[in-house]
């Protein structure tokens, strides 16, 4: 009897839960194309509850669809129905994987929703290296070309940033594949790689003398790191940060998009989200649908040029 009552009660919930209502009436899936625990995941995980609040309580579920430099998730997002129930958390890699020929998915396959954050890159060195400054590193690299090892997700942002430094300083690195920041940290702490693309999330380890920040790729020094010089002031004109935003599959209805955009703007102002971004050394950098569309277009052209400059352009 108990089973029967439970079944009937379940059935009732089951059917009533499905009354048609205005968007959004069911959970929204946010595709993060990297493994959980990576920096992209760390930024969108606190963003999801803020977005959820702004959407009036609709559940926002993060789906980590990682693999092959983020291209698996990109393909999955592209193939999802354009009904506003699938969002795609993206960063600059979408341009790079397209131009380096690793994937066929381009930013133009999506509708921009909003840009939320930018994380400046910091050139980070292993504690086991003998240099303490950018200058010593460059001198060493000039003396031993191709000997300094850099851990990077090949073909993605963590590969491009050191490559830009390489070009600006006229030096040559050796690249070793370490997908994702978490793996690179294990390797650099053990001294198995010399350099990597880091960011402010690793400040704790620098304070504990487990890592060395050589230079930051911003216009001005970061208030969190007053002692770390910018690449620009050292004479290497490299400004680089990884920008993260939300996209929706192409063809998502305009009213749905505007609803999402509004919620996104509200969520970006959420104090809890802001606090967790500050802890991760990331600037909340909100752009609406139009602004983000413009940004993506410029960024795409920029990344195409970058790929060409670095000899990685495949299309």
């Amino acid at each position: 009897m108990k089973v029967l009552t439970a079944a009937v009660a379940g059935l009732a919930l089951f059917t009533f839960a499905n009354v048609q209502a205005a968007y959004p009436d069911r959970p929204i899936k946010m595709i993060v194309p990297w493994a959980a625990g990576g920096d992209t995941d760390n930024i969108f995980r606190p963003f999801a509850p803020a977005l959820q609040k702004a959407l009036g309580g609709t559940t926002v579920v993060i789906a980590n669809i990682g693999g092959a430099s983020g291209t698996v998730g990109a393909r999955e997002a592209k193939g999802s129905p354009a009904d506003g129930y699938t969002l795609y958390a993206v960063h600059d890699y979408i341009h790079l994987t397209y131009y380096t020929g690793m994937s066929d998915v381009s930013y133009a396959d999506f509708e921009p929703v909003c840009l939320i954050a930018a994380t400046p890159s910091i050139l980070t060195a292993s504690p086991k290296t003998k240099w303490n400054t950018m200058k010593e590193m460059v001198a060493d690299a000039k003396a031993n070309p191709g000997q300094i090892s850099v851990g990077a997700t090949l073909g993605s942002t963590s590969h491009f940033f050191p490559a830009m430094v390489e070009k600006a300083a006229g030096i040559k690195f050796k690249y070793i594949s370490y997908d994702g920041l978490a793996q690179r940290m294990n390797a650099i702490l053990g001294g198995h790689i010399d350099l990597t693309d880091g960011n402010l999330t690793q400040k704790g380890k620098v304070d504990a003398a487990q890592l060395k920040f050589l230079a930051i790729a911003t216009e001005k020094r970061s208030p969190e790191l007053p002692n770390v010089p910018t690449l620009k002031e050292l004479g290497y004109n490299v400004i680089y940060s990884v920008s993260r935003g939300l996209l929706a599959p192409k063809g998502t209805p305009a009213d749905v998009l505007s609803k999402l955009e509004g919620a996104c703007g509200q969520a970006a102002k959420d104090p809890t989200f802001a606090e967790s971004m500050r802890k991760q050394g990331t600037d909340v950098h909100y752009l609406d649908h139009k602004g983000y569309a413009e940004f993506l277009k410029q960024n795409d052209a920029l990344n195409k040029d970058l790929s060409r400059d670095l000899g990685l352009l495949k299309r």
Partner: peptide, 24 residues
């Protein structure tokens, strides 16, 4: 089977999208 772990070159996929992700 699937994209190689370094440069994401599809291997043994027989040209299908399904096998591109390999076998999770």
């Amino acid at each position: 089977v699937g994209s190689d772990p370094i440069m994401s070159v599809p291997r043994f996929t027989l040209g299908t999208e399904f096998l591109r992700n390999g076998f999770p």
